[in-house]
């Protein structure tokens, strides 16, 4: 049931995704602030399918040259492509941050035992500015293979970016900056180079008192 209703291709399903800040309170406790978060969900056949977005509407927001989104989509499989619109929660107090930990955690599952590679490209005006590549091995749990990228440290570029964004006095200014800030995550089977998931992330600042929010779309080409 999750195919078409969550971030899942026929080979890999994203279970959870979060980018967070941990702030120590005292030696034994810390506060965890979620900038963005996709919580675990268990869609059923009665849930609606994700809305679709024509991938051509966002091509220019991501790398367009060799190995870019267009080429990736042409290679397929088409059911592996998603767009996530995040409303990021920037309400955290970022002062005195020498002991703060900025991290990203994500989890995936598959019916296949494989080694996955996750490439995360931060883009400004559609051009890659920094890339992180991570390799994860499967763990067999409860009848399926689980992949965990646990507490991966946020890069210096992203930490600086969040700080600069926070210093802008108005939300519309932050959203104006975020209009040209995107992230492209491509998860591949390390050995076959098959695309397992391709997720395009775009952002606004949350105005909600309930923290980070998101919408997920299927990327299609009609």
């Amino acid at each position: 049931p999750w195919q078409g209703r969550s971030i899942a291709s026929s080979k890999l399903r994203m279970l959870e995704f979060s980018a967070f800040l941990e702030q120590p309170q005292d030696p034994e406790t810390f506060n965890k602030h979620l900038f963005v978060h996709i919580a675990q969900s268990n869609p059923t056949f009665s849930d609606p399918y994700l809305e679709a977005v024509d991938i051509r509407q966002i091509y220019d927001k991501f790398p367009e040259k060799k190995g870019g989104m267009k080429e990736l989509f042409e290679k397929g499989p088409p059911n592996a492509f998603f767009l996530v619109k995040f409303w990021a929660d920037l309400s955290a107090n970022l002062q005195d941050d020498s002991s703060f930990f900025y991290g990203v955690s994500s989890q995936y599952e598959s019916s296949e035992n494989m080694i996955i590679t996750s490439s995360t490209k931060v883009c400004s005006f559609g051009k890659q500015v920094v890339e992180k590549v991570e390799t994860e091995y499967a763990r067999f749990e409860n009848g399926r293979y689980v992949f965990r990228i646990h507490r991966s440290p946020l890069c210096e570029y992203m930490i600086n970016f969040i700080h600069k964004l926070k210093h802008l006095p108005e939300k519309y200014m932050m959203n104006s900056v975020l209009e040209n800030f995107t992230i492209l995550q491509v998860v591949t089977n390390r050995d076959t180079l098959e695309t397992l998931l391709c997720i395009a992330y775009v952002f606004e600042v949350s105005t909600s008192e309930h923290g980070a929010q998101h919408h997920i779309y299927r990327l299609v080409k009609d």
Partner: peptide, 24 residues
């Protein structure tokens, strides 16, 4: 930077793209 990018607001995107969910 690109000079002639079409603003996101002018692109063909679902209405929900501009509606922040209000979930607790």
């Amino acid at each position: 930077s690109k000079q002639e990018q079409v603003p996101m607001r002018k692109r063909q995107l679902p209405a929900s793209f501009w509606e922040e969910p209000r979930l607790a």
